[in-house]
Nucleic acid binder design. Structure first.
Lengths: 225, 225
DNA sequence: TAGATTGTTAATCGATTAACAATC
DNA sequence: TAGATTGTTAATCGATTAACAATC
């Protein structure tokens, strides 16, 4: 596969936009819609400028057709290639609580190349119980499973307290990336990719807007009372 | 409370940074650390420029003390005020599945001003079961609860299919903001605040970095094999 | 005081948008 | 062909950073 490895790192914001294109174009293609889409249509839906859509698609090697638009299949395939959805990764979940269970049963993961091969917990009452087709295992098995199954990603859904020490174990065991849902920052070596999913950040924005609405006449025109 | 309502809308990115300051400063204050903090310390932790920290704090009215730094209590209080954490909002959760349950029991919400007053589901088997101290109710009750308890925020943790029609009901019932965890876009009136929590976006970034690591010599220096 | 740290203006950088030529 | 849409360069805009004066 001629993947020119000299490509430079794509920016976070671009990756995020690509994901939005991916979902819009993918969902749109479900009916009997045309198999091409104009950059302006994507832009309208995502509330952005159409030039940026074209630039982004050009950046990942997708060429459009003047007068026609972009072939949806080419967009989808290019994004899958760039984001790595065509490759397959094994992952484990640490923490068989409600959030861990919810993530374990998120069916989209498989389509995105992610395969949950094990779920761990430190509560013996949970050992052996099935979470989305996988039996919950004790934490002692962590290192051996990571090594034997060449697990590259760990999804951390434990409380803040034990999160750091589990992260240390994961790194030592050879995990390359951690998706951290624990409400605490993790210290890891620079070559470990960590993404901290900070749920309260989303709430902050909603709270801010609710407050504005309550306090003043925030919008230019008053609207209904 | 002299809240000058002419303030202009703060940018999304700023709100996000404020939330990070809030967590860093709040957590830092737990021990017997000094009650002041330098912008450079915050910046170092968050891997950003200290000038930006000072700019951001100035933007929300926090003044530092030359040679001393910023008082942590002032930072925390200002962010709480700006983001609306000192006000109290009632919220409901639609969907008593694993994700709904996980969110219902997220204890930080209370400290951020959010109070879950009801959980709804369309599965009769779940009616009456307790989720974090609240009994699950049938969907029919949605409108009356929203109206009677003046609910302003709804947290949507249902499958993509019913999400839009539930959102329509919520808007008609008077909800002002929707926190959407359903994997689908929602169409709502412009004065309804919607935040779409797109879990797969996080995975996209991790997947991208895992792929890079696998394929090429991505980092400038090779490191250990 | 001297010096550490803030506050603010100016410079830089990067990202977005506008303009328009190229294309089928 | 005429015209719709892409592709790309140039202009604009905004956000970040650098520089340095102000302060206690």
């Amino acid at each position: 596969m001629a993947d020119h490895s000299g490509e430079r790192l794509l920016k976070h914001a671009l990756l995020e936009r690509l994901m939005h294109y991916y979902y819009y174009v993918g969902q749109r293609g479900e009916g009997s819609t045309p198999d091409t889409v104009a950059s302006a249509e994507i832009a309208r839906f995502l509330n952005m400028d159409d030039t940026l859509v074209r630039k982004d698609l050009a950046a990942i090697g997708v060429r459009g057709y003047p007068r026609v638009g972009f072939r949806t299949a080419e967009i989808v395939e290019a994004i899958r290639r760039v984001l790595g959805f065509n490759d397959s990764y094994r992952a484990v979940i640490i923490g068989a609580g409600r959030l861990g269970g919810a993530l374990a049963s998120y069916t989209d993961f498989t389509r995105l190349g992610l395969h949950i091969v094990a779920v761990f917990d430190n509560d013996p009452a949970r050992y052996g119980s099935m979470v989305s087709g996988v039996a919950v295992q004790p934490m002692e098995n962590l290192e051996s499973v990571v090594a034997w199954r060449a697990v590259r990603l760990a999804i951390l859904t434990v409380p803040a307290g034990p999160a750091q020490s589990i992260a240390d174990r994961l790194v030592r065991a050879g995990v390359q990336a951690i998706w951290n849902f624990a409400p605490t920052a993790l210290v890891t070596p620079p070559d470990t990719v960590v993404r901290h999913e900070h749920i309260a950040v989303g709430l902050a924005e909603l709270s801010y807007h609710l407050k504005r609405r309550q306090n003043g006449p925030p919008e230019p025109r008053a609207g209904e009372g």
